[in-house]
Simulated assay, not measured.
Amino acid sequence: MPQPAQRKEHPLSMRLPDTDIAIIDRAARLRGRSRTDFVRDAAVRAAEEVLMETTPIRMSAEGFDAFMAAVSGPAVPVPEMVELFRRAAPWEADHSATGE
């Protein structure tokens, strides 16, 4: 007798107010996603953030010393970042010269 295939999915049921559903549905439509996909992705991202915040980082004593030296040393400007911050923001740029 053939064995039934095992389901790998686990249903998750939530009771939400209409206002929450409306917000979720609106955001999901803006992303071109289904409500299920949108909520699943948001929940997994939130869970990963929590896990990353609470996961200890292990390194050797030498690695820790190198890390501390890197973050404790003087700041070094990154030319690309300096140039980026010198540019006007798109909403601040003067478009009158280009006819926009």
Rank of each mutant, 00 (worst) to 15 (best):
V44S: 08
A46N: 04
S13F: 08
V44W: 02
G32L: 09
A97G: 10
P11F: 07
R15Q: 12
P90A: 03
P77L: 15
D37C: 04
R31A: 09
A28S: 15
H10F: 14
W91R: 08
K8V: 11
F67A: 08
R86Y: 03
D94A: 03
E49C: 02
E80C: 03
R86M: 07
T19H: 06
P2C: 00
E49L: 11
E53Y: 00
V76A: 13
L16R: 01
P74K: 15
S60L: 07
V44I: 15
V44N: 06
A93L: 09
A42Y: 02
V78L: 09
M68I: 12
I23R: 11
P2S: 12
A46S: 13
S72W: 01
P79Y: 06
G32Q: 13
E83M: 12
A22M: 07
M81E: 13
T98G: 04
L16T: 11
L84G: 02
I21H: 04
M59Q: 06
W91F: 00
M81H: 11
V78K: 04
Q3A: 12
V71Y: 08
I23F: 03
E100W: 01
L12G: 04
I57E: 10
A42F: 03
A93Y: 02
R35C: 04
T19G: 05
G32M: 06
F38L: 08
E92I: 01
E48T: 14
L51P: 01
R87V: 00
V78H: 12
K8Q: 15
M52D: 15
V39W: 04
